[in-house]
Design a protein around this nucleic acid. Structure first.
Length: 111
DNA sequence: TTCCTGACTTCGC
DNA sequence: AGCGAAGCCAGGA
């Protein structure tokens, strides 16, 4: 793997704990790790983790619930299919009832 | 070494 | 309300 930074490992660890049928945002993860505006770094890390089956990177979307990272997946709709298989409805690359499906590490992990 | 880019977010107009 | 620009950290050229 290419996780040269501890930040990468932390991101993966958090994403890995996202329960099925739930989604998280880049900003939430970044903020949870201490980087207030490091959302871009989260996406970068996930890109390195696309090969890791242990990390449900498809459950991570942007703050609008939009599947912005779908283009980086093997298929054009693989991310949508994965979420759909978990009971998450995707319309126009957007997560339906996103607010309800949202999983905040700062609250759920509640450390 | 410096400069550019990136799966984002937020402020300003 | 909608669009444009800046900020953020890390990695590659």
């Amino acid at each position: 793997m290419k996780q040269t930074s501890r930040f990468s490992q932390d991101v993966l660890e958090v994403v890995r704990q996202i329960p099925m049928g739930r989604v998280c945002t880049y900003g939430a993860i970044a903020a949870f790790l201490g980087l207030k505006s490091g959302a871009r770094m989260v996406g970068w890390v996930l890109n390195q983790s696309l090969a890791q089956a242990d990390v449900p990177v498809h459950r991570v979307v942007n703050r609008h619930g939009l599947l912005t990272g779908r283009m980086h997946f093997p298929g054009p709709s693989s991310m949508q299919e994965l979420l759909k298989a978990e009971g998450i409805q995707i319309i126009e690359h957007k997560v339906m009832d996103f607010k309800n499906k949202f999983w905040d590490p700062a609250i759920e992990l509640a450390l």
